[in-house]
Design a binder for these strands. Structure first.
Lengths: 158, 158
DNA sequence: ATTGAAATAACTCTCAC
DNA sequence: GTGAGAGTTATTTCAAT
């Protein structure tokens, strides 16, 4: 992971359809070198895939929300089962298992507030392992497009 | 947005580097038709971009957390300012402005628990507009790779 | 709106340096 | 890490349906 690898990652996060030629030009190496670098990044698991991003609004899901849920008993089986169940629901964008006041944080995208309520009642509240939950409407969302390697400037490994 | 568009979106979300030929074969239309469809989806803003996904662990950020923050005064200026500030921090993956008990939900990726603590103290707690906050370590995360158009089966628009 | 084919253009990959 | 060449593949256009 040197500066060239970092630059490659940075560019491909912004535009995964860059050709090898173009990418090589952007990072300042020969196409053959660039190809080898990208291959290595894939092989090492630094780059995990290339994905088209779609606008939920264009897909009829203009409303997003977070759902915070507490589960009991909090066993591995219950967690795995609930995760698997959620991943099958079309409304669900992401599922986080977290420490703290809640056990699950679920991000959903739905067409209407009625559909959100229906999801909460029929898909969440109906589950026996969910002892309680709350939800928050998402007003705004900004996602960092480009994730950089840790800069060693800010030390935290004292 | 017919079945062909849906299929195109589905495949490109899984692999944005599919060639037009391959994509056409997968969805069962001629390459020329497929090209036209993809162009239209881009032009209409259904597909917003193509991005390489990178593993935060490979970039030296194995630890992720959510930070829940309450801000005061909750004015447009304060919200915008805090959003902008956060988007400049390399630790930040996404920023959500939400309703409910908290105003901001921030997802971060850091190298160590020490760095998380440092971020909370130096970057969050230090801000005057943050009246209080809490954090949750993320144990597991599953993100839905493919977002489908709303299926009209589950009605919510009564 | 979709198709099929043909022409053009561009890329990927390998190898020797 | 580089550069060039050979081979391959894709993109694009156009006439027809």
């Amino acid at each position: 992971m040197d500066d060239i690898d970092s630059a490659i990652i940075r560019h491909l996060q912004r535009d995964a359809r860059l050709t090898n030629r173009e990418l090589a030009r952007l990072v300042g190496v020969a196409p053959s070198t660039c190809l080898e670098r990208v291959r290595s990044l894939r092989a090492r698991g630094v780059i995990t895939g290339y994905h088209a991003a779609v606008d939920p609004r264009a897909l009829g899901r203009p409303l997003q929300a977070l759902i915070f849920a507490r589960l009991r008993p909090l066993s591995r089986e219950v967690i795995t089962g609930f995760q698997h169940y959620l991943s099958q629901q079309p409304e669900v964008l992401s599922v986080l298992v977290v420490s703290g006041d809640e056990d699950f944080v679920i991000q959903v995208a739905v067409p209407t507030i009625e559909r959100l309520h229906a999801f909460l009642m029929d898909q969440v509240s109906a589950r026996r392992e969910v002892v309680n939950f709350r939800s928050s409407v998402i007003y705004q969302q900004t996602v960092t497009q480009v994730l950089a390697p840790v800069d060693e400037g800010r030390r935290g490994d004292a």
